[in-house]
Design a protein around this nucleic acid. Structure first.
Lengths: 153, 153
DNA sequence: TCCTAATTGACAACATACTGTCAATACTCA
DNA sequence: TGAGTATTGACAGTATGTTGTCAATTAGGA
């Protein structure tokens, strides 16, 4: 596997990787545009989503692992959100330092408002695409990520 | 299209978007790890790749459009690369301010070295995946990006 | 119990990308 | 030709993510 040329799959994967970089940028820009005026951004929406979808209040470290980001990145966003009253910290009986993060009422309202924008946006953008094909692509990307994470943490 | 719930395709697309965010982070980290010791990073490798694959020397603005980034982001990276002697500016007969960017010999060597690492990495990661399936996913992502760019610049 | 290792939050430094603004330059068309 | 528009690079400010380091805390094994 140390040839100097890409295999067909290697070439396709490289193209896919470059497309992911481009699409990522586009999607972040689109998300920021979509959330303009709500006080939220793509990054904040994602963090609040992770809090929202957790079955119970979780620590920053847990959220970071769940999102595939570093503790520090999530911590900074969470601290910002806390400063704006969108999330709050709860005492964690299991760990004195690692507090649990929850959405405040204001945070829940903001997240619901964001969702009201995201749902029609996603439905519109998905119009014309085949759901099964989207699912298939999602599975493929998951497989790639699993493989990346299997090699090294 | 302003329902309060996702359509099947809308839900699949939303999952795909979140997976793209995660995979993007993973891939950037992997790229930085892969290039460790070469003096390059994922971002620099991408910019140098855009210069390398252009049929002729291009301006920073052209490169930015080609990569789906802002002028300013690419400009900063290019300036850094120029500071390290990896790229050089050429006079542009067609535009006094907008100079053309080229890889120096040192830059070409660095890019070739990076490629020697990227090729086996991509081939290894692609092992076990179907090239046609990877191509199909790539086409789908391109379609989504086209649609995003069609709506607004 | 006690030593060691892993986890966690805090802090600092940095890389990468964004927006906004400005002046210089190029382009278009009346 | 000349006025208005678009593009471009430069600069500043900000958001988001990284790595590295440190101390506090927790967990696990001898």
């Amino acid at each position: 596997m140390t040839n100097e040329h890409h295999t067909p799959a290697g070439a396709a994967l490289t193209g896919l990787v470059l497309e992911i970089f481009r699409l990522n940028g586009r999607l972040l820009a689109e998300g920021d545009r979509l959330m303009a005026g709500t006080g939220l951004t793509s990054a904040r929406w994602q963090v609040m989503g992770a809090i929202h979808f957790a079955s119970k209040p979780q620590t920053v470290s847990w959220l970071a692992r769940n999102m595939g980001l570093t503790r520090q990145a999530v911590q900074r966003v969470v601290n910002d959100l806390e400063g704006e009253g969108l999330v709050a910290f709860q005492e964690n009986p299991a760990h004195r330092r690692a507090q649990l993060v929850t959405l405040t009422q204001k945070g829940q309202a903001a997240y619901a408002g964001a969702d009201q924008r995201q749902v029609p946006w996603a439905n519109d953008l998905a119009e014309g695409f085949d759901a099964a094909e989207l699912e298939q692509a999602l599975e493929l990307l998951r497989g790639i990520r699993d493989r990346l994470e299997a090699v090294r943490g």
